[in-house]
């Protein structure tokens, strides 16, 4: 019961700040709401007993990506406060399409899994597992990242991807010659 209350609080934080992200006119306020939404998602991870990913969420999303977005908002300062609507001309079509896709998702989820909590028939609640399995899950994930029959190849590819993104974003954002006066 207390878990359900925690879930509802976290879901309310996540969804209200997500709606604020897409609806607020001031982009800086939207970025702050995005941080609140990431915080709610981190709480959801911890509620799902994935503590490592909750901390990674705090570090990577709130610590790095949000700050990067706030930097970009501030570097494009004149776009921060616009008098006109923040939405483009297809806002009504986008709203209808989004609501339709959400309705389809709700119907599909309702067909597949029960919507009311119950003892663990058909996943009405989290299946009880040995606490040691949950405790060791981070260690097992770390081992599977470096073991040859695990995910060592995707792991190396991810590191190459991060390096390429780092170099690529520096090159893309580097001012070309004769462009410095616009800085």
């Amino acid at each position: 019961m207390s878990q359900q209350i925690v879930f509802f609080i976290l879901a309310a934080i996540t969804l209200t700040s997500a709606i604020a992200v897409v609806a607020l006119r001031n982009l800086f306020h939207a970025a702050l709401a995005l941080m609140a939404s990431f915080l709610g998602v981190a709480g959801i991870y911890i509620l799902l007993e994935a503590g490592f990913l909750g901390m990674a969420q705090l570090l990577v999303y709130i610590g790095a990506i949000s700050i990067l977005i706030i930097f970009a908002v501030m570097m494009t300062r004149r776009m921060m406060q616009t008098r006109e609507t923040p939405f483009n001309s297809q806002v009504v079509a986008a709203l209808i399409g989004t609501l339709l896709s959400f309705a389809v998702l709700v119907v599909v989820i309702g067909q597949l899994y029960p919507l009311v909590p119950g003892t663990d028939t058909m996943l009405g609640s989290a299946p009880a597992v040995d606490p040691a399995i949950i405790e060791n899950s981070t260690a097992r994930m770390g081992l599977s990242f470096v073991s040859a029959d695990g995910y060592v190849l995707p792991f190396e590819a991810a590191s190459v991807l991060l390096l390429a993104a780092l170099v690529g974003s520096i090159i893309i954002a580097w001012p070309r010659s004769g462009e410095e006066e616009n800085l």
């Binding site: 879901a11 939404s37 799902l48 986008a94 309702g110």
Partner: peptide
Amino acid sequence: MIPLSWYLLLSAALFSVGLFGVLARRNAI
């Protein structure tokens, strides 16, 4: 006791809000 479907519904709602933002906002950020 939280059923799996609640997490899936939260995820679907969050995805839909994000999709609306991608489709309807004018600012690239």
